[in-house]
Design a protein around this nucleic acid. Structure first.
Lengths: 339, 339
DNA sequence: TTGTAAGCGTTATCAA
DNA sequence: TTGATAACGCTTACAA
């Protein structure tokens, strides 16, 4: 039904191989300019569309990239996915999107499925600090990490400059007059959680502040887990006036916890989030947060992957850091004692 | 590098064709049970994974389904996409996800790209009331519509029972004492917008109410567009006490508009949303809304597609309606005059 | 600049 | 129950 190279060749009266060359941008220069024109016209007339399965079988490249996301329902990720899609699709590549639910077993499963599909590479948002699967995978496929970096293996990555982002948050709170500031960190296994936690310590030191109490971390990137952590924190240290959360969900959980203890945000407690995911301007209170360029992270990771795919092998590993921006809304205010 | 059928055949000492038959569930019964066992073992030992491009080239089925979404950044859709992914992946199918940004031209573009990839079918969340592309496409591919249905052509679909959902919203407001209720409809081209608008009229009639003022519709499914529409509505009719919005974004826009006119929700104006997308429990005020089973819609649509793919041709067209549920939060209250 | 021919890894048909 | 063979549509040495 669908037209093939042979059909086009027959129509023009030349050999299919020549048609193939004429239609492929990389080999078109080998063909007489006039016949290229004729071939193009005939192809268009016949509605010829190359069969990617046949091409892929021959070249063993699927023009397909596996995109592995912990959870598409977390509103940070759709932005990145869009960035990836927009960039890849412009070059004839197709992303194959999967979820892992932050479960390593499920991750192994979906990655196996994508390998079976013969993806040409992986863009992963699921890196853990300790990630054996990753080193294995990186020997067989080009890989770009987004949002997180791994300590298990040095890999190309695109993420926000968390050191800077967290510093912006701390400076903002400091500027408002806060001195008793705590951090609610991401899960211990998560690299972004770890990085932001380190960044918080550094930013505090730079302001000659000591973090309030011992460090608190959530066990999962969820509002519920954050609520529990925040409850502990707030009980431990009633003098606390501000929290820097490792992401927006955690900030939301912290605000909920405070509310349940009759501490209002921002009157009794200031909270800064991280990511600025959709709707953070409409929650109660509108969240002051560090905006990371979600779409750009996705787009840049796709570009990086594309470059990996053409430059065979040995290019220096590129680790891109995008600059975040503080968005001041209403979840932060001067501490009460200072007002 | 990767093992092929031939490798497995060599290891077992039989012909590749037999290996193929042994490994394929549909043809395994043609093969001696003992050799099936041996083949399976050898395949596992060699880490054999079938090459989908080769199989696809031969069978002209890619085991791939195009999933066309207007905008992944709209938080309703990730839930449906998850439902699709979860169901498809269990059967060896892979969804190919694309965005259209509600732009027909962009839609034509991405659908062409997916056709080029030889998808086996389409799951579309982009149906419009008048949709020429759809009738064309439906002649060449199995199609399942989600969330919206089309009037251009009768097609299998999975969506929420909007008639019921909107009725729940109206009944809730009526029960609170509201009598002056308006609807802000979705865009005129949208089938779900149209359907909910019809449902609203019917529900109002059933309560012997007349909709406040002439109908208002947004021009796009966006908070901004809804804000404008709501402003018009609220200016037109100051006696209005409640709004049923065609989706959550519109509800959010309506609340924002009211706020800007110094009318507080729910004190001066009750608002009901539709969909119950993520975070609607945390916005200000927490939104009373009609919850549609997003994941289930996705999962069911995938199941429908799968059944279309096996049952060649002529099965009766199935239009599945899933039952929504009213989630009462804090954006609705009795009208002031009634309190 | 173009044609020839082989082969990518499967599966379907036919024969044994 | 299994084997032989051809074909799916494309790319790419190599030859002309």
């Amino acid at each position: 039904m669908a037209a093939t190279l042979k059909d086009v060749a027959k129509k023009v009266g030349i050999h299919p191989a020549t048609v193939s060359r004429a239609l492929n941008p990389n080999t078109a220069h080998l063909v007489n300019a006039a016949t290229v024109i004729k071939v193009r016209k005939a192809a268009a007339a016949l509605n010829y569309v190359p069969n990617p399965m046949a091409a892929g079988l021959r070249t063993s490249r699927s023009h397909t990239i596996g995109v592995v996301i912990p959870d598409l329902n977390n509103p940070v990720f759709p932005g990145m996915v869009r960035g990836i899609q927009d960039t890849l699709s412009r070059t004839g590549y197709t992303p194959l999107l999967v979820n892992t639910d932050n479960d390593p077993e499920s991750e192994a499963h979906v990655i196996a499925a994508l390998s079976a599909r013969r993806v040409d590479g992986f863009i992963l948002a699921t890196a853990r600090r300790d990630h054996p699967l990753l080193v294995e995978l990186s020997e067989k496929f080009p890989i770009v990490l987004i949002n997180r970096v791994s300590e298990s293996v040095q890999l190309p990555s695109v993420s926000a400059d968390d050191l800077h982002g967290i510093r912006l948050a701390v400076e903002h709170l400091y500027g408002l007059g806060h001195r008793s500031i705590a951090h609610i960190a991401g899960p211990a296994w998560s690299s972004s959680g770890h990085e932001r936690s380190q960044a918080f310590s550094k930013a505090m030191r730079d302001h000659d502040l000591v973090p309030a109490r011992r460090p608190v971390a959530v066990t999962a990137w969820s509002i519920e887990s954050a609520r529990e952590a925040a409850l502990r924190l707030l009980n431990d240290d009633p003098t606390l006036t501000a929290i820097v959360a490792a992401n927006d969900q955690i900030a939301l959980g912290a605000i909920a916890a405070a509310k349940s203890m009759k501490r209002r945000c921002p009157r009794d407690l200031s909270v800064v989030g991280y990511n600025d995911m959709p709707l953070m301007d409409l929650v109660d209170p509108p969240l002051t947060t560090v905006r990371v360029p979600q779409h750009d992270i996705g787009a840049e990771s796709a570009r990086l992957m594309l470059s990996l795919l053409v430059e065979e092998g040995s290019t220096p590993i590129k680790q891109v850091r995008l600059t975040p921006e503080l968005i001041i809304r209403s979840s932060t205010a001067p501490p009460r004692s200072a007002s």
